[in-house]
């Protein structure tokens, strides 16, 4: 019996003594932890998306607690989180607008044609290496869903060869923006606004050849817009979301039907 008991007693004894010493040491040499930081960490969503520019939620919480970062950089948390943190830190809360991702392309199978029969790896970044993608439009969505795979919230789906972001599910973390090899996903403020769903920078004639709903840069929306929110650069119209009042006039006048009012109801 003692053959088993003795080793048990010895190991347990050493463990007990070591534990005791550690316990005493942790009390004697306790370092006050930053309570503020822990409280902030509780409020943050904890998705570690990195949209704030820090290394995850912990990094942001630490920077906030040390007054090294601005409140409201957390776009998944949005206004609610920023208000709570401001309350905790005793700072005036700035109203922050959440952001939503939008795919600037309407080039579905119906609207565009494929210029090749692609049999390679089923990923946009692979297909983009080959003659700028499968579709006839070199700027358009490839539709293999690299963005869908990277989205932590399941907000992106592929419809008929074009990615589409659900406004309700999107929190604006920007992961899809960074992933898209064609760089056609953009972050826009979360409000009612017109969005030009085209990224083709070619001249109108060229655009018209490859896509039925491409922006041809005809300037009609620019002339129509009462707020002066639309500009055409590189033969693509662009809406300034801050000026756009959502009057829908550009949507009606667009000959290519590539301007839509978001969020789509």
């Amino acid at each position: 019996m003692s053959e088993i008991l003795l080793p048990i007693i010895i190991v347990a004894g050493i463990g007990f003594v070591a534990g005791l010493i550690l316990a005493i040491a942790s009390i004697v040499m306790a370092v006050p932890v930053n309570k503020k930081m822990e409280a902030i960490l509780e409020i943050l969503p904890g998705v570690n998306c990195g949209a704030c520019g820090f290394s995850g939620c912990e990094g942001y919480a630490k920077a906030l607690a040390n007054n090294e970062a601005k409140v409201g950089l957390c776009s998944p948390g949005g206004d609610k989180v920023s208000k709570e943190i401001s309350k905790l830190l005793g700072i005036e809360s700035e109203k922050i607008e959440g952001k939503k991702a939008v795919v600037m392309c309407f080039g579905t199978h119906e609207n565009t044609e494929n210029k090749m029969k692609y049999q390679g790896i089923g990923s946009c970044s692979a297909a983009a290496q080959l003659y700028s993608g499968i579709g006839s439009c070199q700027y358009g969505c490839i539709g293999f869903g690299d963005c869908k795979n990277v989205c932590p919230y399941g907000a992106i789906d592929i419809y008929d060869g074009v990615a589409s972001v659900s406004f309700e599910k999107c929190v604006g973390c920007g992961k899809c923006v960074a992933t898209c090899p064609k760089n056609i996903i953009k972050l826009i403020p979360d409000k009612e606004q017109a969005v030009v769903h085209c990224s083709n920078k070619n001249k109108g004639i060229e655009t018209k050849k490859v896509c039925k709903v491409g922006c041809i840069g005809c300037m009609r929306c620019v002339k129509e817009c009462p707020a002066g929110a639309i500009t055409v650069q590189d033969f693509v119209a662009k809406v300034d979301p801050e000026k756009c009042a959502g009057c829908k006039k550009c949507v009606e006048v667009c000959p290519s039907k590539c301007i839509k009012l978001l969020p789509l109801s």
């Binding site: 003795l6 080793p7 050493i14 463990g15 070591a18 010493i21 550690l22 040491a25 040499m29 370092v31």
Partner: peptide, 26 residues
């Protein structure tokens, strides 16, 4: 009980490292 060498040593080392960590932190 020489066969207990490894496990006892690791136990002691782990406790010591914890101690060093606490001291350094402070």
């Amino acid at each position: 009980l020489a066969y207990l060498q490894t496990i006892v040593f690791i136990l002691v080392i782990a406790a010591l490292v914890q101690l060093v960590e606490t001291i350094l932190k402070k």
